[in-house]
Amino acid sequence: MVQTILSSIRKDFRVEFRGRYAINVSVAFAFITTLSISFATGGTAIRPAIQAIFLWVILFFSAMNSLSHVFTREEEESTALFLRLHSSAETVFLSKLLYNMAVFMFLEMLIVPLCVFFLSITVIQPVQFTITMLAGGIAITSATTIIAAIVSQSGGRGSLFTILSFPVTLPVLWVTIDATTRSITSGLIFSWNSVLFLGAFSMALLIVSYLLFPVIWDEG
C-alpha cells in the first residue's frame, strides 16, 4: 500500500510539474496579491493582526486552485477510471491527501517569505509561528481534499470548490489567524490551545474523509 501511495504521489508531481498549470496559477496569484497589498498600503505600518489576516487569506486563495486540481485533473484527462482499477479508494485518498499537503507546504515556503518581505512581518516567536503554519496547512488540506473529490464527481468546477471549502475552513482560518497574530506580536502569549484545536479538527475530518471517500470515489 505504501509503495502504491508513493508511486501515485510521484505520478501526481510528474504530471503537475510537466504542465505546471495549477502551481503556476497559485504562485502567480500569491505574487500579484502580495505585491498589490504592499503597493496599496505604500509603506504604511500594518498591525500584526492585519498582517496575519493578509498572510492566511493569500495562502488560502492561492492554494484553492491547486488543491481542487488533484481530482478534477483525473476527471478532465479521463484517467480516473484507470486509477479506480489500479488502486483501492483508500490508497487514492491517502496519496491525494499527502500530495495536497506537500503542495500546500510548497506554497507556504514560497508565500511566507514573500509576505515577510513585502508586508514587513516580524516573526517574534519563530517556533510557534512555524508550528502554526504547519498545523494550519494540515488542517486546510484535511478539510479540502474530500471536498475536491466531491466537486470533481459532481461535475462542478473551481467556484463550487471555493464555495464548499471556505465555510469548512473558516474555523481553521479563524484559529490560525489568531495564533499567527500572537506569534508575530511582541508581548502577546501564544496559546497552545489553538494548535490543539487544529490537530483535533484535522484528525476528526481526516477520519471521516477516509471513511467517506470509497463511497464518493467508487461509482455505484
Partner: peptide, 17 residues
C-alpha cells in the same frame, strides 16, 4: 450520494463550532 457525503462531513464540524 455526494450530497449525503457532504452532510456527514458537515456534521463532524458541528461539535467544533
Amino acid at each position: 450520494v455526494l450530497a449525503s457525503a457532504y452532510l456527514v462531513f458537515a456534521m463532524v464540524t458541528v461539535p467544533f463550532l
